[in-house]
Design a binder for these strands. Structure first.
Length: 434
RNA sequence: GUGGGCGUAGCUCAGUUGGUUAGAGCGUCGGGUUGUGGCCCCGGAGGUCGAGGGUUCAAGUCCCUCCGCUCACCCCA
């Protein structure tokens, strides 16, 4: 094999790109209804943005970033997630001065140097939302809501499971962490090797362990829930009330932990069946200390990310390329000037028009028309040129008739519009039946 | 970073105990009388059998090394 894309990086080809467009358009439409505006930030940032934002001791920063030195000696990093960069832009552009609350979304690629597997790539894409400037539980609920809504819209009605938890705040979290560390050290002999390591690096993560031995050992471990301060309890309670009111089903997972340091209070994951080991389609949480940590004012925030590839794996619907409205079969070079004129007018009116390149037999051209699923074909050869009448062929009924040159574009436009109206009516009727 | 599975045409795969010019289906291009598509029939193009080395008279087939893909661990969207 010759030159190849690098490991974990994928070409996204037609017709699959159709599914991407569909998902992105749906997400954008959904965000607009929630009052989010699009922000686009660079995919490359100073490494510092992520080191400080995500946390020095996270796996992402320690071993997964694409980091390199720029020609002038700066350390740069391909963004492994969107939030840190958006917060940097938020601070740099003083967006908090425009209005107290900013609701931003972005869609784009992220980069993490991990071993690829099902639902995990080195370049992957996220649909991201950040709500900055409010610590109202309603803002948590709205971020979960918009994630839920997008996933519903793309047709993942079943098989989704929303898990929610609170990680506490800087007031109540340290107490839990300390007690947990002590507990783990006292029970280290019952833990697997991985957990013994986690115990030191990120004690909370032992709760994620799937091994039976560890689960048993952790039955009596201190749970964050019992350490929540009154404010954190109240906050989560109100978020859950909103979710209930919105009829978004959830389960509380007291062991739900996130891999990024900046999260506090509300965290959530939306998991799906059918994704293999990487079963989280969307996740997010509250990060009240982050803006300040990156050098901005003390402003709270909450956000979420949907994994595009993972959502697409769940969509599974195969989207076809759009069918062509009209294919122009040209048998004589002199006919091309007429054809170009018709195609220009039709394309300007939104019709999909194609013609063949190079000299081809009529048979070959009609075959090509068939392959692009042309609804109509127009045939122009020597005799048509003489009579100044083209042949318009209905590819479904096989009917064909002659149309004067100066009526070809209009005739096609009329025919296509009629069809569209019929289709639209059918669609409406079908929807009514459902 | 660690383990398991897999690498033969664009795709899905066959290839007998090692034995002639490596095959099929689909796709693609063309033909089936002058200028009429899908179905059918016929034909063409397309492969360093993942790469390198070894064993052998002979390797797609056996052995070794490497590379890639994939799933899982880890971690996460």
């Amino acid at each position: 094999m010759g030159i190849r894309a690098i490991r974990g990086f994928k070409d996204i080809l037609p017709p699959e790109t159709r599914s991407w467009q569909e998902l992105e358009e749906l997400a954008r439409a959904c965000f607009e209804t929630f009052g989010f505006s699009e922000i686009r930030t660079p995919i490359l940032e100073k490494t510092e943005v992520f080191n400080r934002g995500i946390g020095e001791h996270t796996d992402i920063v320690e071993k997964e970033m694409y980091t390199f030195t720029d020609r002038n000696g700066d350390s740069l990093t391909l963004r492994p997630e969107a939030t840190a960069g958006i917060i940097r832009a938020y601070i740099e552009n003083k967006l908090y001065n425009r209005s107290s609350v900013q609701k931003l979304y972005t869609i784009g690629p992220m980069f993490r140097h991990e071993r690829p597997q099902k639902g995990r790539l080195r370049q992957f894409h996220q649909i991201n939302a950040e709500l900055l400037g409010s610590d109202d539980p309603l803002s948590d609920a709205e971020v979960i809501w918009v994630a839920w809504e997008i996933l519903q819209e793309i047709g993942l009605k079943g098989g989704l499971r929303l898990e929610v938890n609170s990680l506490g705040c800087p007031k109540c979290r340290p107490g839990h962490r300390k007690d947990l560390s002590v507990f783990l050290e006292n029970n280290a002999q019952d833990l697997c090797e991985d957990c013994k390591r986690r115990m030191k690096t990120n004690p909370l993560r032992v709760f994620d362990c799937k091994k039976e031995e560890c689960r048993r050992a952790l039955l009596l471990a201190p749970v964050i829930k019992h350490y929540w301060c009154p404010e954190c309890s109240e906050h989560l309670g109100r978020v859950l009330d909103y979710l209930e009111f919105l009829e978004i089903p959830f389960v509380i997972n007291p062991h739900l932990v996130r891999g990024l340091d900046y999260y506090q209070r509300t965290t959530f994951e939306i998991k799906a069946t059918g994704l293999g080991a990487q079963d989280t389609v969307a996740a997010g949480g509250r990060y009240d200390g982050l803006v300040e940590l990156l050098g901005g004012p003390k402003i709270p925030g909450v956000g979420m990310a949907i994994g595009v590839e993972r959502a697409l794996l769940l969509m599974e619907s195969e989207v076809e390329e759009e069918a062509t409205d009209c294919y122009f079969a040209v048998l004589d070079r002199d006919a091309m000037e007429y054809v170009l004129k018709w195609m220009k007018e039709l394309r300007q009116n939104g019709l999909i028009c194609e013609t063949s390149y190079g000299k081809k037999s009529l048979k070959a051209q009609l075959r090509a028309a068939d392959r692009v699923r042309a609804r109509f074909s127009v045939i122009v050869g020597e005799s048509e040129l003489d009579e100044e009448e083209a042949i318009l062929r209905d590819m479904e009924t096989h009917e064909q008739w002659q149309v004067p040159f100066d009526e070809v574009a209009q005739e096609l436009l009329k025919k296509t519009l009629e069809e569209e109206e019929v289709e639209a009516k059918k669609a409406v009727q079908e929807e009514e039946r459902e």
